[in-house]
Design a protein around this nucleic acid. Structure first.
Lengths: 157, 157
DNA sequence: CTTGTGTGGTTGCAATATTAAACCGAATGC
DNA sequence: GCATTCGGTTTAATATTGCAACCACACAAG
């Protein structure tokens, strides 16, 4: 089987999926962003096998999404918290949430809505904007080859 | 293995992952949003086993992400194109792309950048806005229980 | 200090998914 | 008509997941 690795892929979507594109990682990250920190909290919340949770936490730490912190409630156990790189996944969670809110067949089964903490009102949909502020749809965008980074301070001739 | 189904979960993130959260589906959707339509195009582009591609395409069709259209270049084969529900996944792809662009250890390996088709300039980062237009970070948001939909036209007393 | 319990894992084994490769019929191309 | 491509299906080998049992350590009570 050997899940083909996407780490060397040139597509940024594939590269992201290589890091947290498996069945559980994003749910662990979601839980972490909701404030869960302990092994037992994740296990109880997600209901996954403990050995799987162990390996997922380990690779998420290896990849810089989570870090372990020595303690928090005084006990000698460790906790798992998001790094900045892990917090950066937040917009992806929002996008997933909003897709379900818009397209799910049984939206009545969705338990929660995301609100602006200050006002308590639902957030707006994520919008993709151009540099001059227009809202862009998929068809308004295209991909360009990334310009090669020019070598600094090295003469090209 | 029996991947535990997330379809009945009350979390919208989990529900989305249940639909296209496996190793290949999002990459197929990415390819479809780039205009690929044929079985062979997907297989060549992704390099996955053909039987897996077969089952993935079938479940994506079942779940309303893709639909088969009878032909397009006159040949008697069928093609796979995104439904509106499938096109709705676009912001998720953008969010994944932007996460890699911001946090990947080897950003020089990313081949493409997403640009505004009209102007050719890079798009801005997805922003989460409140109803009154403030940009929200993860800590500016919280989750609230979804208010139950009240039955229409039925007196509550 | 000894027993008991909860936390945070590890280890086996059975079940399942992925892969690569062979095979195959129908549709095209020549 | 003949070879090739397209779009799969089948098969066997291999990898991953899930479940359950086990285990070590920390901590608390006595």
């Amino acid at each position: 089987m050997k899940r083909t690795s996407l780490a060397g892929d040139s597509c940024p979507v594939a590269r992201a999926l290589d890091v947290f594109g498996d069945w559980w990682s994003l749910l662990i990250i979601r839980d972490a962003s909701l404030g869960r920190r302990r092994f037992g909290e994740f296990q109880a919340s997600l209901g996954l096998a403990k050995n799987i949770l162990t390996t997922r936490l380990r690779t998420l730490v290896e990849r810089g999404i989570l870090k372990t912190v020595p303690a928090s409630d005084g006990s000698a156990y460790q906790e798992y918290v998001l790094t900045p790189k892990g917090h950066g996944i937040f917009p992806i969670l929002v996008a997933l949430r909003q897709w379900t809110e818009e397209f799910d067949e049984h939206p009545d089964e969705i338990a929660t809505i995301m609100v602006d903490r200050a006002k308590g009102k639902p957030v707006k949909k994520l919008a993709l904007l151009s540099q001059d502020g227009r809202v862009l749809s998929a068809t308004d965008t295209t991909l360009k080859l990334r310009p090669a980074k020019r070598a600094r301070r090295l003469a090209t001739a």
